[in-house]
Design a protein around this nucleic acid. Structure first.
Lengths: 258, 258
DNA sequence: CGTGTGATTGATTCTTGTCAACTATAGTGG
DNA sequence: CCACTATAGTTGACAAGAATCAATCACACG
């Protein structure tokens, strides 16, 4: 085994095998050779500062990105100029699929905190995927999951009250943090109240009040962007419109009554 | 040229070249041979009656479908049991991509009126696509467009008033009817007020009132499910929150005032 | 010609948006 | 080290919009 072989293996481990992209390629039964091929087109991009943009609305689809560290939001700007947050992207999640439809990005991707990404030239990816069936399958899966996430997002917006939407949002975040192996009972939100509001289709004041209500109900503890989930069951119940959760959350749904 | 050749060509024209699937395969520069291959796995399914289901929640992903005639809705049923309409599907549009994420359908697809579909075994499709680059590309595109549609749907739900949502919905419908080469100024809605409400995140009464308001403003004429668009510019303006459209719609945004 | 479903309209209540003031926090420069 | 400032978040009062409950209307169907 030559020196360069060792270095290559180390590089592979660092750049793909160990990272978020597991989700994209590793479970698909890819050989070491195929992994190397995928890795050869993958680029580790320089870190991004808070508020830096990964791509702009209208940009041609060159690369898809995988968040490595930090967090991102993708926003779409309406004709009237107001932003709506299409999605938040945590480490390991794909960014840039919004351009699949017509080859141009519909959204802007913005780093919420200092972050870093891997970038994958999209044409190279599809090219390679076409002769690695497992990768092809996995790519479909990842795209499909992004569709599912959008549908979950929609479910949050449809005929739900502010505190229910917020509870759903927090539960979704918990789930994703758990996948990342991070604590999901105590965490720090990377996004502002305004971002959450633009994601949930609410006014930012309403988001603030919803936080307050969940706190009053003893379900979470809020201090700015620091969140502590005190009662996950009650939070889940609240997310689904149940007013009096069985185990705890002493008065979910009746803050001022009584 | 033998008799069977003629029949085959006629069959091709009837089954693919002439149909909605143009969008999926034809523009991608597919050869006649490749078209034949695609056509060989395509099945024309028996017509569906109104309210018949194409697939249920939880069904394994066997086939994707293309609506040929009629119209469909895909609904997702929340834990609490209420339906939300994820999307409407007009002729030429793909149904069933909701199962891409984990191989099982998240939604139920229901015929809104008597309808018919083509079905494509999904594993065969991806298999064929893997050696027809143009088809592969086109498949990505179609999936991407469905993502885009979901995002447009979300834009309808976020911080828009009832009549704005309805106006956006009607504009979207117009666009799709135009693609189909059908009249977009006079048409019949295939879905009930309740379906529209579940799609727009409103109560059905609110949808009814929103129709009334657009009619009062002289923008559309409503008679049950029959819609006539009297002023498309005003409808578009209304869809984007502009209260007094330049050309007409004499009092959009002030039904009871004055 | 009744019957049932789908659609409209009305009255009322509740939620949320809006405007505004206020508080807390982090970052900056003296 | 502290005051100053800008930004983010909270809270309150009020009004507008939509949900809800309920009654009525229109239409297709047997």
């Amino acid at each position: 085994m030559s020196q360069s072989d060792v270095v290559d293996l180390a590089r592979l481990r660092r750049s793909c095998a160990h990272c978020s992209l597991q989700e994209l390629c590793l479970p698909a039964g890819i050989t070491g050779e195929e992994l190397a091929e995928l890795d050869s087109i993958m680029r580790r991009r320089r870190p991004l500062n808070r508020n830096e943009r990964l791509f702009h609305h209208g940009d041609a689809l060159n690369c898809v990105f995988v968040a490595r560290e930090g967090a991102f939001k993708t926003i779409s700007i309406s004709r009237e100029g107001d932003e709506t947050v299409v999605g938040f992207h945590m480490p390991g999640e794909l960014i840039g699929l919004d351009a699949l439809g017509d080859g141009h990005h519909r959204c802007e991707a913005i780093a919420l905190v200092d972050s870093s990404v891997c970038e994958i030239p999209f044409d190279r990816l599809t090219e390679i995927a076409s002769h690695i069936p497992g990768l092809q399958f996995q790519l479909m899966r990842v795209i499909g999951q992004s569709v599912s996430r959008d549908q979950d997002h929609m479910a949050m917006l449809l005929r739900r009250q502010a505190h229910e939407r917020l509870a759903m949002f927090l539960m979704g975040l918990r789930e994703r943090l758990e996948i990342l192996g991070q604590r999901s009972d105590v965490f720090r939100l990377p996004m502002s109240r305004e971002d959450i509001a633009a994601y949930l289709g609410l006014a930012l004041e309403t988001v603030s009040r919803a936080f307050g209500r969940l706190q009053d109900d003893g379900i979470i503890h809020v201090h700015g962007r620091s969140i502590e989930v005190l009662n996950a069951d009650a939070l889940d119940a609240c997310a689904h419109g149940e007013q009096t959760p069985p185990s705890a959350g002493r008065r979910c749904g009746s803050r001022t009554q009584g």
